[in-house]
Design a protein around this nucleic acid. Sequence first.
DNA 1: TAAATTTAGTTGACACTTCAAGTGAAATGT
DNA 2: ACATTTCACTTGAAGTGTCAACTAAATTTA
Lengths: 159, 159
Amino acid sequence: MVFHSSKLEKYSPSSQFFDINEFPFYWIARVNALYSQEMEKTLKPLGMDIARWRVAVLLSLYGTLSISDIAEHAIGKLPTMTKIVYRMRDAGLVEVNASETDGRVTVVSLTDEGHDKVKMVLKTTEKKVFAKAFKGFTEPQIKKSTELLRRYFINMSAE
Amino acid sequence: MVFHSSKLEKYSPSSQFFDINEFPFYWIARVNALYSQEMEKTLKPLGMDIARWRVAVLLSLYGTLSISDIAEHAIGKLPTMTKIVYRMRDAGLVEVNASETDGRVTVVSLTDEGHDKVKMVLKTTEKKVFAKAFKGFTEPQIKKSTELLRRYFINMSAE
DNA sequence: TAAATTTAGTTGACACTTCAAGTGAAATGT
DNA sequence: ACATTTCACTTGAAGTGTCAACTAAATTTA
């Protein structure tokens, strides 16, 4: 039946019934772009950018991480992360050391200055970005959104 | 009451109760990164990348767009879009013309080769990316995810 | 209608990301 | 125990993205 369309067809980009405005990945990309843009505005005056910021937050949450760990959490390429980390070191934000248990591994952690900068950015972005984004959301709705996103992530991580 | 935490506090990055795994924007960034990574794998052998791909899809859906239109839909900077478009023209994927009604405007549209390439990419990514991502999702769940994402987008677009 | 302003796009310099090709340390195989 | 392979980076070259400065067309203002 060529002219019958299941409801799911509009989520299938190759279908004639595809509707980009109903396609979750289109909105994920757009929300992410907008979020990044907003964050950049805050970060720039503080001499940071999104790349450095993601690394800084991960380090503030997890303490010490290897460059591979950072690449994994931030879903980035190793050479990129290496360079971000050394740029951050040159800016005094992180400390870089060879692992004591595995000579191949480079471990990274925030300096005091790095911790301070994280606190500063969070304080600035609190109302400007987060309060704005969550406006009108109830706790269960935020939770639901996280849950659905996590499911997409798990699905795509499979194999 | 310093030691009391409202449920919403865990979504507030500067709170001591903040939990990154419950933070929607963390997952949006990760899902987006993973999705981009998967797409790149498909696009690379075809001589494309995510940037070119986003432009190509928009053109295949909307027909002819100005460079500003493209920048708006894709949430990118104008100089970036200009360069992507001319790279795509050099690769034979799009046609670039001055608007007949407004001399400032540059209008862009897919060539036949561009249309073919879009079809090819969609066919390849259908099962590899989309079917995989939506696995286990019902139609209402996909719809709900889009709805929530759109709300985040609208919130952040405000002002 | 001429001047001033706004809009849409382009360009060059520079910072950043990525690929490909390394290095050296650890784990594995024989 | 030694050779081979894998792992965790690191580096240089090439490609991209972004800012600032510019051009030219359209619109607004005086």
